[in-house]
Design a protein around this nucleic acid. Structure first.
Lengths: 138, 138
DNA sequence: CTAAGCCTTATAGTTAACTCTAGGTCAAGT
DNA sequence: ACTTGACCTAGAGTTAACTATAAGGCTTAG
């Protein structure tokens, strides 16, 4: 079976080797095998697992909680319910993040218009109101 | 004009007074007035400005960059272009974040199905493949 | 007139997630 | 044989964004 070095995996996942060793130290990678001399050997399935870890990370999950999940994976079928619940909870969290980000986007887009028209007029005074801009109720 | 104490503003924005003082120390609030004895007096327009700061923060902008923006605001019309450019850049960044979050959501939803069916079957073995689950190319 | 409950400053501590350094091992190429 | 470069560990350092503490000052209700 083909294996990969820590450097290759780091490049593929846009991480550094430092970061991968840090994850390993934090217990996120109990499944990585080693050569006799201690070098980590990453399999395709390890890279897939790392992608899940990246997914959880980008959903805002802290590393210690990701470790819980990894531990549950090692414990087998008795933890299926926990893992299901965890992903359902993540789903709700990501949904809320999407809503939040949408609101953020709306304000930013409003600001783009605001500065576009100020720029066209040559002065911010076209928006009569306070200097540091009201979020515009309209 | 009605003003608010730091505690009132903190409550309204779901921040702590510590955080607001920290922002002030970092130069994010050069516009806040004080009483003779030094207590901060927040106006409605200050709260609006703080909402913009929160918006930029939730777009992932670090506090030091937000400070640049606040400084530009104080400098007046000569910085309109920078501010416009900044919001256009933010818009692109938030758009990318939304795309990323959507991908994250898709993986998580897939995992919800994965664990639902494993739970129904009573074992993860229904998904014949590796223990730590492949992101499913389908 | 004093105690509660705000507020103030300066400064120290915390936490997460890296990020790097030092000192060493190992395998491949010249 | 020896050098090069990637790997290893342990542990120290960094950064951002808070978060808390200590010591003290105003204001108002009893």
């Amino acid at each position: 079976m083909k294996t990969f070095s820590i450097g290759e995996v780091a490049k593929e996942l846009n991480l550094t080797a430092y970061t991968l060793r840090y994850y390993d130290k934090e217990g996120l990678m109990p499944f990585i095998e080693r050569t006799a001399s201690g070098t980590r050997l990453f399999k395709e399935s390890d890279i897939s697992a790392l992608k899940i870890i990246e997914c959880l990370k980008s959903s805002g999950m802290p590393i210690k909680e990701i470790k819980n999940f990894i531990d549950w994976c090692s414990e087998g079928d008795s933890t299926l319910q926990q893992r299901y619940d965890m992903f359902m909870e993540r789903k709700a969290i990501v949904k809320a993040q999407m809503a939040e980000l949408k609101k953020t986007m709306e304000i930013i887009e409003h600001k783009c218009f605001y500065y576009k028209s100020a720029l066209d007029a040559g002065t911010e005074d076209v928006h009569k109101d306070a200097k540091i801009e009201i979020p515009m109720p309209n």
